[in-house]
Design a protein around this nucleic acid. Structure first.
Lengths: 351, 351
DNA sequence: CTGAAAGCGCTAACAA
DNA sequence: TTGTTAGCGCTTTCAG
């Protein structure tokens, strides 16, 4: 029997220990340990008996003890700069699923990055001896130095870039995907409703080494107009206004619009409904990274698949951890187009 | 010096231990332990020196070792049935904040409840010896038996009810709040856009012991009409249709609408815009539990404040844990009305 | 195939 | 004020 009377008052009611199981089964705790974890050197009948007794006693190994003995906590930290943004939630869900499946636990840390003041590594320290590895949601969530610090401490890190960040390596791909879809539908007069922060589309194409893409568009005579929507506050309202203004302009109306976010798309949708424009007959709209909203609205959109990417990230992390090799850098999965009801071929009536 | 060469191959690079600090400071590890944790029986100069050395060495206590020694993991499990729903995200955020502030870590578990098949306590077991307590998001997330099981094991649990559940104890309060607001604005012809699952409003009032409320409404000649919107799929679209149908009816139009969810409100808003109804001049709309969306839309709404409630729940849990007393059952904070731009006094033109 | 024993890093009496 | 010591519950050699 385990001598449950700790050294004083620190007795805390705790479940059965490995010793209880060992005693009940008439074997040593070493054998129980092997049996429970499915390790080889245990006779089949012994194993069966032990497992049964363990179940009867409701035995669950103590994470702390295992952790102390093995040096691994079997838990992974997930650091995110947002819990409200749907894309981050999706990523979190993807990570949770992978972790749960592989029987790791997920330690969540919300670490919003205030643009001002390079806040010190606040309670990131808390993670140091608590997790085996780190999944970081958002490229700007942790500083490069902090990440290197962790890695130096033997904690592997993977960063999942999110689309709403300055670093638009993903966003630009998504825009290209959306445009391709529209061009295939015959649209030529496109306008891009961009997030206020981003720089010119054509410029970004080139910066990303996608000149061929820019050239192709030019060759086809397609030169998307760009409109900046201030999204810091009241994205929806600003988007409505921008669309209203656009539509009031003289000259030919665009036949398709690509929106840099769900909010922007919603604003366009609302105003279009108000003006009496029928979607997608009169106008095609593509949203971006549509989570719940664009599905509910029937909005065609291109998704960055945060859930899938975070999921894959966790698997890479755990593979590295368990295989004792470095992290493998699988190619990021590219944005995926989900076609719903807001896009249609261009009207050919008076072509 | 800590003898870092473990019993064989299990050497895993790990940071400085308490012994390293003790050796460097020329004291025993017991003293270091006291110094670091701010316990009393340490001389001030010694403490200062130790702290400094600890910092230099980058010492962080091992959670496993502390856990094993104290019997408490200093981490709390948060079980949620949804990571996508904004209200759950908000609750998660609230919980995370409280936990972080009190230097606990949050172990996240996603446990969607499939209505079918009473799934066994899957990997809930994983939590058993990993957390000191449990915060459960959603009344239907865990079975009563599972919760009792945990409590029997010495793991305190608190359940945070969420508004989108059958148990509408909160939802009904919210509806009452919304109606009061509208009545004060002079509205008398209200309609409730309800979630498909819920039962009659008046009935629920009575079931909740709110007869006086029902009576007051009757006395004032206010008898809200109720419309069920199927929200299982395409809530927004269904809500649009329902509103469109309502408006096409002959007879007097309602002057205000209470919506049981954001999606429903959005549907109404979209269709109202389409028909050419001006909000709030022609029609007042109140949403529910508006997270990001209703703010962006300028929708007046009543919030269940999941973040605040989860936050408070965590604090109660930790107080109980640290004070070694039971959980105190503070009254749930009631729904809060947030007035934005979608409600206005009833037009008095032809009264 | 099984057991004995030595830790993992920290805490908390108790003694000094 | 500080040190000594005995664990916390589990893993993992190394011997049987």
């Amino acid at each position: 029997m385990a001598q449950r009377t700790a050294t004083g008052t620190r007795a805390r009611r705790t479940g059965a220990t490995i010793e209880d199981v060992a005693a009940a089964a008439g074997v040593s705790n070493a054998t129980v340990s092997r049996a429970i974890r499915g390790l080889p050197r245990v006779a089949q009948p012994t194993r069966t008996r032990i497992l049964e007794i363990a179940k009867t006693l409701g035995y669950t190994p103590s994470a702390s003890a295992t952790g102390l003995a093995t040096g691994r906590t079997r838990s992974i930290g997930v650091v995110t700069s947002s819990l409200r943004h749907p894309a981050y939630s999706a990523a979190l869900e993807g990570a949770e699923k992978a972790l749960h499946q592989r029987e790791y636990s997920l330690i969540l840390l919300h670490h919003p990055h205030l643009p001002t003041s390079p806040q010190p590594h606040t309670n990131l320290n808390m993670l140091r001896r608590r997790v085996d590895a780190l999944l970081i949601l958002g490229a700007r969530t942790l500083g490069q130095n902090q990440i290197e610090q962790f890695i130096r401490d033997g904690i592997p890190c993977i960063v999942i870039r999110m689309h709403n960040e300055q670093d638009d390596g993903i966003q630009i791909q998504a825009a290209v995907t959306a445009i391709c879809h529209l061009v295939q539908l015959g649209h030529a007069d496109l306008v891009l409703f961009q997030d206020g922060a981003t720089t010119g589309f054509q410029l970004r194409l080139k910066a990303r080494g996608l000149e061929h893409c820019a050239n192709a568009l030019n060759a086809a005579g397609i030169r998307p107009r760009e409109i900046r929507v201030e999204t810091r506050s009241a994205a929806i309202r600003n988007s409505r206004k921008a669309f209203s203004r656009l539509w009031a302009e003289t000259g030919p109306k665009p036949t398709a619009i690509v929106c840099a976010s769900d909010e922007i798309a919603l604003g366009v949708l609302l105003e279009a409904g108000h003006i009496g424009i029928t979607i997608p007959k009169d106008l095609s709209i593509v949203g971006m990274d549509g989570q719940n909203l664009s599905e509910a609205l029937g909005l065609t959109s291109v998704s960055h698949q945060p859930a899938r990417r975070a999921n894959a990230g966790i698997h890479r992390l755990l593979d590295a951890l368990e295989g004792d090799h470095g992290i493998t850098y699988a190619g990021e999965s590219s944005p995926e187009l989900v076609i719903r009801q807001s896009t249609a071929p261009r009207k050919q009536e008076r072509a």
